[in-house]
Design a binder for these strands. Structure first.
Length: 580
DNA sequence: GGCACCGGCCAC
DNA sequence: AAACGTGGCCGGTGCC
């Protein structure tokens, strides 16, 4: 292979010529920082295999990259990258370049890894696993701002060059494991995810600050009160002779409760809740803990995440964040923001804009209906009736309009719980009935939905006996089964039921992300968040209605592509802020 | 001081 | 006691 170093605008034409005939090109960036807003691209490496071009972007101007941008944005040649989200963000932010058709060796490796937590997926790990080749990553964290060394250039070129043979090997594996459809959806979701991260979520810090002040005031009063009462019970005094206790220490709090005759084993809410009715101190403690959770996790930490210039929060989305295929998000996680109006309303559109919020209606139960082909469940969804009400009506043999609130609630608990592999014991405690009653309810449920019962059984069996499950798209989750370990066997049986459903839901959301992203071209709108069955788009006020229609259409289409026998419903709302 | 673990709890 | 799946994050605790 040869390396061609390009250090001026004049050199770009030669690169374009060299790349045009290629079917595949390896693409990689070296940057001065991992965060696109804090660092720049130093090197852009492009490899056809025999030829590797290394462009020094400190010395090549953005306009000169135009023709190269067209190659990168197109469908051919296919771009091969390792963790393309990173390069996509850098190229979009600093060079205004979008990525077209791509193959991501990182995501491919994760898909093939099928959730194995032992496997690592850095480029060197993947190159070693699939090509048996040692890759030197010691230059990765060197200083990319100054005069570049021969070693740095060779390292940079090698990273791009290896992507071509790596793709070939990974494609063989993907075909062998029948993971083509899942890979395609993942690859096509990279650019929407990258752009969502770059956009960030607008946040009203002023509003949140005043809410935090109020909550802190309320917490301070409770803290004073509880420290007095519980600290006194403990008999602990500080230097000034005042009662002392750490309310954040479950051990100390349990101890204090014991001394007050409150016989609890832990301080978790479900344990304390029954006492709260009789004991004001327990009630106040629970109130304190609620505020403490809110403030410690979301209060100041959220404010510190707000970018001062843009008033936006930039989070990391992990496209394959879980073995089932779901996204996860971190620093901060925007998938676990409490569903409280005073918090959610701070995630809003910038002045003059709108948030368009769309979520799938009961997508996991629809997936269960599709997998099981249960005639009664299918019929309920086709008729468009309230599924939980319909379930209750059939279980309790009452007309649908006579279903009581408790009956519907019990049916709902079962509908949801069974997808997680819930047993009679868990059901009994959730709906507060004796165990035999819960067992009877489950038996009745399975008489109504016989095919659901069969599917759940066979899903658990498949997991246990084949050691893997697949989603509708064919994504695989593999587990090691130790048949001697009873707890683990039970766990795998529950996973066998849940993972295909949860994973299929993730498949659908990712497909939707791509369809929506593409359909929003030309509309003043961009995706700002996604939460498992929900996509949030920020738009201008003028384009909100169009955005809503595009969003609904994209999500429905994605759902219909992947589950064909159950209607898909998407609820869409236009709002100033992130409220349901 | 950093790391791992735990109890606890937020989202879907 | 734990109890139905997937994550991330907090403060406390104990270890090196």
């Amino acid at each position: 292979m040869t390396i061609q170093l390009v250090t001026s605008d004049a050199g770009v034409a030669g690169v374009v010529t060299g790349l045009q005939a290629a079917d595949y090109i390896g693409v990689d960036c070296e940057t001065t920082h991992l965060n696109p807003r804090q660092g720049r691209i130093r090197l852009l490496q492009l490899s056809t295999g025999p030829e590797t071009y290394v462009l020094d972007l400190f010395n090549v101007s953005k306009p000169a990259l135009g023709p190269l941008g067209e190659i990168l944005a197109g469908d051919r040649p296919v771009k091969i990258l390792h963790n393309a989200k990173f390069d996509a963000k850098m190229l979009r932010h600093h060079a205004g370049i979008g990525l077209g058709r791509l193959f991501d060796t990182y995501l491919a490796s994760r898909i093939l890894g099928a959730g194995d937590p032992e496997r690592h997926h850095g480029l060197a790990d993947v190159a070693f696993r699939y090509l048996n080749q040692q890759l030197d990553k010691s230059f990765q964290k060197t200083d990319w701002t100054g005069e570049l060394t021969e070693g740095q250039l060779k390292y940079a070129a090698a990273d791009a060059e290896i992507l071509l043979p790596l793709r070939s090997r990974l494609v063989e594996e993907i075909k062998r494991e029948r993971l083509i459809a899942a890979s395609r959806v993942e690859f096509e979701c990279v650019v929407p995810t990258a752009e969502m991260e770059l956009t960030g979520i607008y946040f009203d810090a002023g509003r949140w600050e005043s809410t935090v002040d109020d909550l802190e005031g309320a917490r301070a009063i409770l803290e004073l009160d509880l420290t007095g009462e519980l600290g006194l019970a403990l008999g602990q005094l500080d230097l000034f002779g005042h009662p002392e206790i750490n309310l954040n220490s479950p051990a100390q709090v349990v101890d204090a409760f014991h001394r007050l005759g409150i016989d609890v084993r832990s301080t978790r809410e479900s344990e304390l809740a029954p006492w709260a009715a009789r004991s004001p101190v327990v009630a106040r403690f629970l109130e304190f803990r609620g505020l403490q959770k809110l403030l410690s996790t979301y209060g100041r930490p959220l404010l510190e995440r707000v970018d001062a210039e843009t008033s936006r929060i930039f989070t990391d989305f992990h496209q394959i964040g879980t073995p089932t295929g779901r996204f996860s998000s971190s620093e901060p996680s925007v998938q676990q923001i409490p569903n409280l109006p005073e918090i959610r309303r701070c995630f809003c559109a910038p002045p003059g804009g709108k948030l368009v919020i769309a979520d799938y209606s009961q997508i996991e139960l629809r997936i269960l209906a599709d997998f099981s082909q249960d005639p009664r469940m299918l019929e309920a969804f086709h008729a468009g009736v309230d599924l939980h009400r319909s379930t209750a009506s059939q279980m309790f043999r009452v007309p649908i309009e006579q279903v009581t609130r408790d009956q519907r609630s019990a049916a709902k608990q079962i509908n949801f719980g069974l997808m997680y592999g819930m047993g009679a014991g868990a059901l009994a405690s959730r709906i507060d009935v004796p165990l035999p009653e819960a067992e009877r309810l489950l038996a009745t449920y399975f008489q109504v939905y016989q095919r659901v019962a069969e599917w759940l059984r066979s899903a658990a069996d498949t997991a246990l006996h084949t050691g893997h499950i697949r989603t509708k798209l064919g994504r695989v989750y593999r587990f090691r089964v130790d048949h001697q370990n009873r707890e683990q066997v039970a766990m795998i049986q529950r996973l066998g039921k849940n993972a295909p459903i949860q994973g299929t839901s993730a498949d659908i959301l990712k497909r939707a992300m791509r369809l929506v992203h593409d359909a929003l071209v030309g509309i003043d709108a961009r995706i700002v968040n996604c939460v498992h069955d929900e996509i949030v788009v920020e738009s201008s006020g003028a384009d909100a209605e169009r955005t809503a229609e595009v969003l609904r259409q994209g999500m429905v289409t994605a759902g219909q592509e992947i589950i064909e026998t159950v209607p898909i419903e998407v609820e869409v709302k236009i709002s100033e802020d992130w409220q349901k």
